[in-house]
Computed example of a mutant assay.
Amino acid sequence: MVEKKQNAATRAKEKYNAAHYDQVKFVVKKGGRDTIDAAAEQAGMSRNAYILKAIKEKMERDGFDGYLDFAAEEG
């Protein structure tokens, strides 16, 4: 297996992200990502910020009172 060479800044960012963030993967049908991207762009947000905002709003509507810090991701 060929290992990609990365610069120090990239390695530092990846190390920081691994220590401070969880990653969640989900799957949509072909074309779904483009639809999400278009909606996010229309809202002036990144895809990630748009999805996080949607999740947070749904959780609040459902009365979930747990702590999730989305502040860093909202746009």
Rank of each mutant, 00 (worst) to 15 (best):
L52G: 02
Q42R: 12
K5G: 13
E73L: 03
I36F: 11
T10L: 15
D65T: 08
V2D: 10
A39Y: 12
A43D: 10
R61E: 13
L68Q: 12
K25H: 03
N17A: 14
I51V: 12
H20I: 03
A43I: 01
A38M: 12
D62R: 03
G66M: 04
A72Q: 06
E73N: 03
K4T: 05
A12P: 05
A49P: 02
R33W: 05
A49N: 01
E3K: 04
S46C: 03
Q42S: 11
K53W: 02
A12W: 07
Q6K: 13
K53C: 01
K30D: 15
A54Y: 00
E74A: 09
Y16Q: 09
E14N: 10
Q23A: 10
E41K: 13
D34G: 12
Y21W: 06
K56C: 09
Y16L: 06
R11Y: 11
E41C: 02
A40G: 09
M1P: 14
V28C: 08
E57M: 02
Y67D: 15
G44Y: 07
N7T: 06
K29M: 08
Q42A: 14
V24Y: 06
K29D: 15
T10I: 14
N7A: 03
D22A: 10
L68F: 15
K13F: 08
G32C: 08
M59G: 04
K56S: 14
E60R: 14
H20T: 13
V27D: 13
E60M: 06
E3S: 02
A12Y: 12
K13P: 00
Y16G: 00
D62K: 03
Q6C: 06
G44L: 06
K4F: 09
T10A: 15
D37F: 02
M59N: 07
K13Q: 09
I51Y: 00
A9K: 10
E57G: 02
V28I: 06
K29Y: 12
E14H: 07
R47I: 00
G63M: 05
A19Y: 00
G31R: 14
V27M: 11
L68V: 13
L52R: 08
M59P: 04
K53G: 03
D22S: 14
Y16S: 04
G32M: 09
S46A: 03
H20M: 09
T10D: 12
D37P: 01
A12L: 08
G75M: 01
N17H: 09
V24I: 13
E60H: 10
G44H: 05
V28H: 08
A49C: 01
E3Y: 03
G75Q: 02
A9W: 06
F70K: 04
T35F: 12
A54Q: 04
K4E: 15
E73P: 00
T10H: 13
N17S: 10
E74R: 02
A40F: 11
A71K: 07
K56E: 15
A18M: 09
E41I: 02
K15S: 10
Q6T: 07
D37K: 11
A12H: 12
Y50H: 05
A40I: 07
A49Y: 00
K5S: 14
V28R: 04
D34L: 06
K15D: 13
T10E: 14
H20S: 11
Q23Y: 07
N7Y: 10
M45G: 00
T35P: 11
D37N: 13
A38N: 14
I55F: 08
Q23P: 04
H20Q: 08
Y50F: 11
V2Y: 05
K25L: 02
A39I: 05
K29H: 15
R33N: 09
A49D: 01
E14Q: 11
G75S: 05
K25V: 06
